[in-house]
Design a binder for these strands. Sequence first.
DNA 1: TAGGCCATCTGGTCCT
DNA 2: AGGACCAGATGGCCTA
Length: 330
Amino acid sequence: MTKTYTKAKEMAELVGTQGWMDDALNSKDELKAENGRPGPFGLVAGLNEEHDSIEEEEEEEDDGEKPKRRGPKKKKMTKARLERFRARRVKANARERTRMHGLNDALDNLRRVMPCYSKTQKLSKIETLRLARNYIWALSEVLETGQTPEGKSFVEMLCKGLSQPTSNLVAGCLQLGPQTLFLEKHEEKTPGCESAISSHSFTYQSPGLPSPPYGSMETHLLHLKPPAFKSLVDASFGNPPDCTTPPYEGPLTPPLSISGNFSLKQDGSPDLDKPYAFMAHYPSVSLAGAHGHPTHFQNAVPRYEIPIDMSYESYPHHVAGPQLNAIFNE
DNA sequence: TAGGCCATCTGGTCCT
DNA sequence: AGGACCAGATGGCCTA
């Protein structure tokens, strides 16, 4: 639990039990005047703004001639209503906190399977997502070509679009000297297959950064030979350039919901009615739209099912790329 | 001190 | 009606 969170929780508890609403009501005009927006107590400001807007509408309808009020009477903000509103707001805030914590937990889980997970130097949210994207892309290249790229190329792929500190962290974690990568990034002009899968040789250097026991570069690659799902990456992120693959002609697995996978019928076809746990669709990355409608990805993404458990509960949280590799190769 | 990152609060919108 | 999701606003913390 972070310091900020603890503090915020204390504050939340405080406002939940103290008469903060009254204070806020008193200070709301100051807050609005300050920046034209609801302040930290926007709840109260918003409430009163709502009333203001209702009044404005009514005035317009009156054409400015009749001061007589029409329509439903404005509900008075009684103390009881205020109390109910406050309770609702407090509950909503708690839910929102929980939701965001869940989101952050998921992000933490994602960090753990990134090839440069470090407890001491945590990747930011945005960098985690970027690195994840690159990681998927890099792995898809491996799946597609069936070859293990050189370490340097792999790092270059991982670091595309990442900030310099993050790039150095990745390089360090992958046993590639950060200095080397730094120079390369300056040289980079037209990223493409040639540069990404270049044949430069490089020497492993002492990174000078915390180096998790992730082993050599090769251990980060999944030695699987299913059809690639690079087209998904291309469709999603618009890169990399010119690394096209022949379209996958094989059978596709059914759409996969976030929460469930699919079991197979006796004839081997997918049983759409029976979601079940512990059947990974790892490289398939089959996606369904928010409402179960297939996305455009589904026709572009080859499906390949690996009967292993990829659910997070199934393996230790410290498992990272190489460990996953070992799992896959079992 | 500025800028990046983050957690939280909030109101709006959509869905069940 | 209530919950989930989202984006804007805000303030705190940290680092260069």
